[in-house]
Computed example of a mutant assay.
Amino acid sequence: MNAFVMTKEELLLLTEKIVSGTATDEELIQYNRLFNAFRAPTEWDETVLGNRQMLGDTIRERIQAVIDRPAARVVPFRWRRWAIAASMAILLSGGYYYYRTLQHPVLAPQAERFKNDVAAPAGNHAVLTLSNGTKILLDSTGNGPLAMQGNVNISMNANGQVVYNGADNTSTTNTIEVPPGSQPVAIVLADDTKVWIDAASALTYPTAFSGNERTVTITGQAYFEVAANSRKPFKVKNGIDQSTIEVLGTSFNVKAFGPDKKTATTLFSGAIAISTTNARQLLHPGEQAVVNNERTIQITTGADIREVLAWKEGLFYFNGKDIPTIMTELQRYYNIEVEYQTNVNDEFIARIPRDVPVSQLLNLLEMTNLVHFRIEGRKVIVIR
């Protein structure tokens, strides 16, 4: 078969680990390599894996056994039921084996429905707009100097970060826009604050912090590691709901996309204050503040840090999310259109690297047999 071959028992063990949520990042990577290998034209090696149909049945049985297994601790029901969404799907891809029930009509093989696959973004397509209106396409520049703004030098370092160096008594404004279908971009501001900017997001900021405070504006999603400076508080203005985050030195994530009905700020270290026209709340590490349309603030404790930070770590991680929420994330990252031909009200769990084609995540969701998809150009159609 090739270097990706596993024995039947190794494959079943990996299946159980992924379904139960105990797979390591290395095992997730192994899954993706195997997925690609099995999608390629190849001969089925029955001496290693046995009968294809029988192995598919065995995988289904192992998955169901894990889902039905009594939990050793209190676990929400939806986790055990929908954990199948993160299950092993290699043998079910490429038309080898497709599970059908009486409740669903027979669908075209997955290989046919996914033949127009959409690849993950190959790089960042961010645009840096200088104070004079000049636009710099960051994916077309190499490492080294990019521009000068007053006495501040802008460059691209070896890690692909946009870095501002220098001090100036006067400050101009720059903006970095990361379009849909782009990898995230990292920037180091003039005060050494580090910001990671997600796809479909933008950050507006001064080239130098010359006043009594440091203020930037974000739309979309960004992760901040703020350089401490008690004499100059750092403020993040939300370009969507006009709320303000005030910090001294801390790390936090802001998610504020236009179509969303609410924006969320999650604190990882330090302390911040969230202010709107109607309310003000202090946030402690592990807490998340959600601002709704009425400009009120709701604080929740015990935020799922892994889920919040997944995008920065190069992962999709959905922990009990519905299909519209998941597809909205995919729209931003893959720059695709989504069409719904059915309503799916169930919740799903999936965790997969962001560097894979969209078909691999859709394949995981299809493992539940609750939803299916068809890819047509850059459109993903949600079907039963």
Rank of each mutant, 00 (worst) to 15 (best):
R78K: 08
P70H: 06
Q103H: 15
A199E: 08
L34Y: 09
E9V: 04
K235I: 09
P121I: 15
Q161T: 07
T325H: 03
I240K: 15
D260T: 08
Y333R: 04
V195G: 12
A108M: 13
I197N: 15
R78W: 15
T134E: 13
T219K: 11
A3R: 09
F38C: 01
E246H: 01
E16P: 13
D139R: 03
T215Y: 07
V308C: 05
A271W: 00
P259D: 09
I218A: 11
Y334R: 02
I272Q: 00
E112R: 05
E9Y: 09
R280E: 04
L49R: 08
S359G: 01
M6F: 15
N132Q: 14
L361Q: 07
E246C: 02
T193E: 02
T244C: 02
E213W: 06
T301E: 08
N253W: 06
R69C: 10
H104S: 12
G211M: 03
F114P: 12
I176V: 14
T263I: 15
T141K: 10
P109H: 08
D355E: 05
A89C: 14
N229Y: 02
A158F: 00
V338H: 03
L315P: 00
K261D: 14
R81I: 11
A86V: 00
G377A: 05
D192N: 14
F316P: 00
A228Y: 00
T277F: 02
V382H: 13
L34F: 03
S182K: 10
D191E: 08
K8F: 04
I352E: 05
F114E: 07
T170S: 14
R69Q: 10
I67Q: 07
V152Y: 09
A350D: 05
M367L: 14
D168F: 15
L49H: 14
I218R: 01
N253I: 01
Q242L: 07
G142A: 02
L267R: 08
T173R: 09
A256D: 12
V188E: 12
A199W: 06
T215A: 14
L14F: 12
M6H: 06
K321S: 09
T101E: 06
M54K: 13
R354N: 01
T263K: 05
N174V: 03
S359K: 15
P353L: 06
G123E: 12
N159I: 01
S140N: 07
A271I: 02
R73L: 08
V195P: 07
M156V: 00
D346T: 11
E337W: 00
I297Y: 05
D25R: 03
V358S: 10
T193Q: 06
Q64Y: 03
R33M: 05
G133L: 07
P285F: 04
R81W: 11
F4K: 15
N153H: 15
I323H: 02
V382F: 09
W79P: 00
H125E: 11
F316S: 04
L315Q: 14
N229G: 00
N151C: 06
F348E: 11
E339M: 02
R60N: 13
P70Y: 03
R33D: 10
N124L: 08
A264K: 14
Q341K: 13
E43T: 10
N116M: 10
Y317P: 00
I297N: 02
L283R: 02
N132M: 01
D260W: 11
N157K: 04
A65C: 09
D168A: 13
I383L: 15
K312P: 01
L282S: 10
H284Q: 13
N124D: 13
E307M: 12
